[in-house]
Each structure stands twice: as structure tokens, then as C-alpha cells.
């Protein structure tokens, strides 16, 4: 089975994030890494593709960034499509979905996997927008995925527990963290990844018009950014064996006991 995995490349979440002072978008100048959320998708894709299929990565990222893609290729993905174009700066979730859809159409996969939401933007709608644009059904919030007889079976998280959902292929599935344990790339994998093909495309290559993407295509803007009301830090007590007594007092003050 051929699987496309959406692989977002993001600034290292450990580094403090920053917004562009003018347009208020996230600053993405430095090196980007594979979003952890998508590492689960890559692993799931590799397991489902099996020996007779392969995983193709699709990514939209600035400045021809490939570091995150190399990580996923080292895990075992066969190849990647990277869409990178100055015209994409400021693209919103719907615009991103349009770009990913055009790239995915070139592969014509049996299954598309994305994460339920990314770590940096966490809009959480891109994969479903993508499914609608591709004319595919989708199952979101998967905590378990199996494929059998041309159908995908998903345990989908719900408020109360989970649903067993069935869906014919081709379709889009979004996975949660914990769906599978991502493998660490082996040394052999890392070496092999260096020579795996990464096709780089521009907005024009995809047949999209520049006004469908970027700041213009977004049709939404950030008006202002302001510090949130701070929640002042309170009293700190180091436990010397009696901290529970201070908690009891606190509960009494709140009349909870």
C-alpha cells in the first residue's frame, strides 16, 4: 500500500517562540526539525505500507528546508515532496491544505496520514480541509489504525471513550500521539536518507495561483498581540514532612472541607 505522510517541519519547540513584529506570524528562520506529532504518522505509515508499498512524505516549508524530512527519510520513508516558495509566506490553514492537496494528487496514494494538530500552529483543521479538497473521506483522532481488505479501521477518540470507525480507502487519517511508538533512525537509515529523492516544487509547479496562498490568500489577519493577564505566582512551601497541613489549611480557607 502506498502511503503519504504529511510531515511538518517546525522550529525547535524547546527554543522560545517568537512572532514577527510586523505581520505577527511565527518566526521560522533557523533550522527546522520534524514535528514530533508527525513522527507518529511516519511510524504508522511505515507499518501500514508494508513490504509492497512505500511512504512518501509531503511537506510545505520555507527556504527549501529538508532537515526534518531527512529525519523521516532516515526512519524509512522512501521519498519526499517539498513545496517551498517565497509566495507561501503567511499562508493560513486552508491555503496550506490547498498546497498539500496539489502535492498529494501527484502521488495518488491509498492512504494519507497527518497529525491531529501540529506542535507550533495547532490549528487542527488542515488535514480535514485537505480531505475535502481531495474529495476523500477522513477519520480524525485515531489512537489505533489497522488496514484490511481495502478498508481502514480506526479507534477514534471521543469525549466519552472511543468509537470504532470503518472507512474505505483511499482516505485521510489523523493520528494522535501514542498511536504507535516512533522508531529511532538507525545509523544505516541516516546514511541511506542522504541519497533518497526530495522533489522540490514551487507554487507555480503545483498549478496554484499565487493569490490563493500567502498573506493575500489567507483572508485573515492578526490585528494585535498583547501580553495576557498574568497569574501571579503564589506561596511556595518546601515540604519538611508537614506540607500536607498547609494544604489542609488552604482547603479550609476555600471552604472545600
Amino acid at each position: 500500500m502506498n502511503v503519504v505522510v504529511c510531515a511538518k517541519q517546525i522550529p525547535d519547540p524547546a527554543a522560545p517562540p517568537a512572532l514577527d513584529p510586523e505581520r505577527h506570524t511565527l518566526v521560522r528562520d533557523g533550522k527546522l526539525i520534524l514535528d514530533d506529532s508527525d513522527a507518529y504518522g511516519v511510524e504508522m505509515g511505515l507499518q501500514l505500507a508494508g513490504d509492497d508499498g512505500e511512504v512518501t512524505l509531503v511537506s510545505m516549508a520555507p527556504n527549501g528546508e529538508v532537515s526534518g524530512l531527512r529525519t523521516a527519510l532516515a526512519m524509512g520513508a522512501a521519498k519526499a515532496i517539498l513545496v517551498s516558495d517565497e509566495a507561501l509566506r503567511g499562508t493560513d490553514a486552508l491555503g496550506t491544505a490547498k498546497v498539500l492537496a496539489k502535492a498529494i494528487e501527484r502521488v495518488n496514494p491509498d492512504l494519507v496520514i497527518a497529525a491531529t494538530e501540529s506542535t507550533d500552529g495547532y490549528t487542527g483543521t488542515t488535514p480535514v480541509q485537505l480531505a475535502e479538497l481531495l474529495g476523500l473521506p477522513s477519520v480524525t483522532f485515531a489512537k489505533k489504525v489497522t488496514v484490511e481488505g481495502g478498508k481502514v479501521r480506526v479507534e477514534r477518540q471521543t469525549e466519552a471513550g472511543y468509537d470504532e470507525v470503518e472507512c474505505p480507502l483511499p482516505c485521510v487519517v489523523t493520528v494522535t500521539a501514542g498511536v504507535v511508538e516512533p522508531r529511532y533512525p538507525s545509523f544505516k537509515g541516516i546514511m541511506a536518507a542522504k541519497s533518497k529523492p526530495v522533489e522540490q516544487l514551487s507554487v507555480a509547479d503545483l498549478g496554484l495561483s499565487p493569490d490563493e496562498v500567502g498573506f493575500g490568500g489567507a483572508r485573515q489577519e492578526i490585528v494585535s498581540v498583547a501580553p495576557a493577564e498574568e497569574r501571579g505566582a503564589g506561596e511556595i512551601v518546601t515540604d519538611e514532612g508537614d506540607a500536607h497541613e498547609r494544604i489542609i489549611q488552604f482547603l479550609e480557607q476555600l471552604k472545600l472541607i
Binding site: E132, G135, L136, P137, T158, V165, C167, P168
Partner: peptide, 11 residues
Amino acid sequence: AVSAASVQQRH
């Protein structure tokens, strides 16, 4: 086809 996903069982 876009609506082909259906719930088989709820837990």
C-alpha cells in the same frame, strides 16, 4: 465518497 466513514461501535 467523502462521507464513507461510519461508526461501527461506540465504547
